[in-house]
Amino acid sequence: MAEELQQLIRAAQAGDLASFARLHAQFVDRAYSVCLRLLVDVQKAEDACQETFIKVWQQLPQFRGDSAFATWLHRIATHTAIDLWRKDRLLRLVDEGEPDNQVASPDEGVPKDLENAIAALPRQARAVFVLFAIEGYTHAEIAALLEIAEGSSKAHYHRARTLLKESLSER
């Protein structure tokens, strides 16, 4: 399996589109997932996902396998989604008080409730929560990614938890 992946990577590095298509098929869901949770908008998540794989294609020749391919790709996806997330700021100026789009979740029940509650979090709290609780980034890493202080990241995370607990207990 690992060997097969290495072969695909090597072929894609050499410019083989068919191999890159297979890498795309293998990793697109994971990349899309982080984009969707951060951006809470299917169109934007798709855009971020596309941009991610364009960057991966461009940077692939430089990929030396220092980190796992999945980790490397996921980091690019996260950065790309956050760039778009940052641009999203102006949206809030005119979207006052409107709940965010509801994210479709494959399962019913608690995961869906939680998915919707995450989508409805204030945007900074949502970003921090997704990155910390779901994606496993540290607060120091999140601080650097979102350009906020580390203390802010922790505070946003706790605020997100408080809001999520409230939201889930109301259901």
Partner: peptide, 26 residues
């Protein structure tokens, strides 16, 4: 403080905040 300010038709004059500032107006 770490400050986030958003407005539409607003003139904003901000000074001396060292914890981070995110200021946007249209």
């Amino acid at each position: 403080s770490e400050l986030e300010f958003e407005g539409v038709s607003v003139d904003i004059d901000v000074m001396g905040i060292t914890g981070g500032s995110d200021i946007s107006t249209v």
